[in-house]
């Protein structure tokens, strides 16, 4: 799957609900798959009593990985050239996350057209949890 330069317009956006009512078990599932067993994410007692948080929270990388779906569902995994994010706020159990990708520009490069995206994931209160940029190769 690959998108053609004709099939994408500057300003075009895609929005995707990444998760509704994030469950603690989903965070544990990501810990097991990724190998990041940091008790901040998997151990409520540690997170509260030792680290001083209100409870466990999601790995930033879980939010980034889920956010990536709004890009890969649109342009395809194999077309992605770059993907980078800043983690703006914690994602807590119970959160509902929505990601938006926007085409900021389409650039002609010697290797063919490249689309540049901004990405933004917000929680149910509209607060940004992740912001970033990505680039993807397009079919000429």
């Amino acid at each position: 799957m690959s998108l053609s330069a004709d099939g994408i317009k500057v300003g075009e956006t895609r929005e995707s609900v990444l998760v509704e009512d994030l469950k603690r078990t989903r965070i544990v599932q990501y810990a097991g798959a990724s190998g990041d067993y940091n008790p901040l994410h998997t151990d409520e007692r540690f997170a509260i009593e030792v680290a001083g948080y209100p409870g466990v929270f999601a790995h930033g990388m879980l939010t980034m990985a889920m956010t990536g779906r709004v890009l890969t569902d649109w342009v395809g995994t194999e077309a992605l050239l770059t993907f980078g994010v800043r983690f703006k706020a914690q994602v807590w159990p119970g959160d509902t996350l929505t990601a938006t990708a926007t085409v900021e520009s389409v650039e002609d490069t010697p290797a063919g057209p490249v689309a540049h995206f901004s990405v933004r994931t917000v929680n149910q209160n509209g607060a940004e949890v992740v912001t970033g940029i990505a680039a993807a190769r397009l079919e000429p």
Partner: peptide
Amino acid sequence: GGLHAEQHFEY
């Protein structure tokens, strides 16, 4: 006490 602030990939 550290946190992940940014992550960037180039493919």
